[in-house]
Amino acid sequence: MKKSVFFGALAATTLVSGMALAGTLDDVKARGELLCGSNTGLTGFGNPDASGNWSGFDVDLCRAVAAAVLGDPNKVKFIPTTGETRFTALQSGEVDMLARNSTWTASRDSELALDFVAVNYYDGQGFMVKKDLGVSSAKELDGATVCIQTGTTTELNLADFFKQNNITYQPVTVADDSEAQRQYLAGACDAYTTDASGLAASRATMPDADNHIILPEIISKEPLGPVVRHGDNNWGDVVRWTYYALLIAEEKGITKDNVEEVLASSTDEEVKRLLGASGDMGAKFGLDNAAFKNAIAAVGNYGEIFSRNIGEGTTINLARGLNALWTQGGLQYAPPFR
């Protein structure tokens, strides 16, 4: 009896708190502004420029959502969150969504009551070494000193990797990326390990980039994606399908520049549904029918976002790799839009 009362109370509390938090979409519409939890600054993924305008790969996703929900990619406020404050900021309602390279893991999904709605970047932990070390595989790093940021999952991955391959290493712990780069360049460590995208950005800005190579081994899976609160499924759908709309746009060849043209001329039924020319798909999400068209018109398709911020041709110069569309051998795959 006591137990059932307890569970009943618990369920009621959950329900109430769930109800209190439900309706992020309505909140955003009423506020007229999307609160986007961003990184405090990560090259290529999200950082403000000299005049305070945010740009980056993750930032563009928030802009797309703002364009879809509010019709204006600039109606978004970026709230910098640190590794420690990000999930609490989301849970407590301080931000509507997180787009700050957070790795999707089981415990974050279950225990922290978060929902990872998509994976917008498949990353993985890699190694960078100096060319003259003469190493071509991470398995040859026996006895090496390795620079590693403390308190991250990369530290655990590193230990696992060396243990599995039965080789030893000497960790040199550093606080952040800039310090790691400094220690590595000063020769305090033979190898520097962090997410491959971060390594590429570091390498690109080194004075002697050609003398450093990123080893082929990727020792962990780091699926990074936007996060919303658990239990607000409608809002999760909005964010998820805004992202998928950008993927479908790339698949169908819709770009920022030609979206109006495609809207006028396309005979592809899925494209017409996506852009709001037929059906009422937008309305089913509680959005304007032209919502996804607005998102694409605001930031371009996934490929454009990628190449503008981190892709080949930018200083960071990342290849699409796993982040290519499924049609081109990558993992980016959107369910059908119908």
Partner: peptide, 10 residues
């Protein structure tokens, strides 16, 4: 944030 700018990274 300054270091996150690709121009000043490093």
């Amino acid at each position: 944030i300054v270091r996150a700018d690709i121009n000043w990274k490093g």
